[in-house]
């Protein structure tokens, strides 16, 4: 009997291991099946001819191009905001405040409070219902400041040679702003996590060697954060692509004007064209999948190249 023990333990181990992995993956697998089923039924509902017909439609092409450009713009703008904000939040975190203000407890508390408040406010767009973001933007642009900005933007676009674009509200810039407002919050969160995971010591060493803060940021911190930046960009881009509520309220759903892919789905559905709505959904899914795969490939090539 004692001789059998190692063999039986090994066998038991294999059995429990199999049980462990299968039970752990079971729920995830079900979710995976659900996603695949959703895509599958969409493809079942609309055939290839429908997709070709839709792609030949000038309005659908318009919404694809507009979606791609506005999402890219919103994502780039999000990165512009997310990188410095994420860095500030990561480097002026609880430990940093504790370390620097150890001798001044009151100031320490105040700094912690401010830091938490800022952190919370930056997360607000994530938890707000999308329609609220839209309504808030709409109301913001009715204030004297908003109207002034609207008029200035209209003048700027006229100067650029686009007098037909009447400012921001109910125009293409409204789409970008609506997408940016939500996407930036996600990008900031991602960048904050990225910088938090990067060891601060090389930056401190560079500082002790006489480098200035800006130089440390773009020569030491940023090169290490490029994967996080790509991830934040992808997340912001994908979030913008699926954005609908704020666009509905703030940019409207005018065909060939402020029509992005999510709007096309909505309009087709509202006009009783379910097939058209499904085809637009499929295009939306395809664009999103292509974007995600491209990003993954980029990240993988980074790994293979030995870069962090």
């Amino acid at each position: 009997m004692p001789k059998d023990r190692p063999a039986s333990r090994c066998s038991l181990g294999r059995r429990t291991s199999w049980l462990f992995w299968s039970s752990m993956s079971g729920l995830g697998g079900l979710y995976l099946i659900l996603i695949l089923l959703l895509v599958f039924v969409d493809f079942q509902y609309a055939n290839w001819v429908d997709i070709q017909t839709s792609l030949a439609d000038e309005r659908v092409r318009f919404s694809i191009y507009l979606s791609l450009t506005t999402c890219s713009l919103a994502a780039i703008l999000s990165i512009w905001v997310a990188v410095p904000t994420g860095y500030v939040l990561a480097r002026l975190g609880r430990d940093s405040i504790q370390r620097n203000l150890e001798q001044r407890p009151r100031l320490n508390q105040l700094a912690q409070l401010i830091r938490h408040s800022v952190d919370t406010i930056l997360d607000v767009p994530i938890v707000l219902p999308p329609l609220v973001v839209g309504i808030s933007l709409l109301v913001l642009f009715q204030t004297p400041l908003g109207r002034a900005l609207d008029h200035t933007t209209q003048d700027f676009f006229s100067w650029l040679g686009f007098p037909g674009i009447r400012g921001i509200t109910y125009e293409i810039p409204a789409i970008i702003l609506a997408q940016f407002t939500v996407a930036a919050a996600f990008a900031i969160r991602t960048m904050r996590n990225t910088f938090e995971q990067i060891d601060e010591r090389p930056e401190l060493v560079a500082l002790t060697l006489g480098a200035r803060r800006f130089r440390v940021f773009y020569t030491v911190a940023m090169p290490q954060a490029w994967r996080g930046t790509v991830a934040a960009f992808t997340l912001a881009w994908a979030r913008s692509l699926g954005e609908f509520g704020p666009i509905l309220i703030f940019a409207g759903t005018a065909r060939m004007k402020t029509e992005v892919l999510s709007t096309t789905v909505y309009l087709n559905f509202q006009f009783g064209n379910l097939r058209g709505a499904v085809v637009a959904s499929l295009i939306l899914i395809s664009v999103a999948v292509v974007a995600l795969i491209t990003t993954r490939l980029l990240l993988l090539s980074g790994y293979r190249g030995g870069r962090r």
């Binding site: 650029l160 040679g161 686009f162 037909g164 293409i172 004007k257």
Partner: peptide, 14 residues
């Protein structure tokens, strides 16, 4: 991108 997106609008140059 901004210029491109505005150019998409058929009536942007009216």
């Amino acid at each position: 991108l901004l210029t491109f997106s505005l150019r998409l609008r058929p009536d942007a140059r009216r």
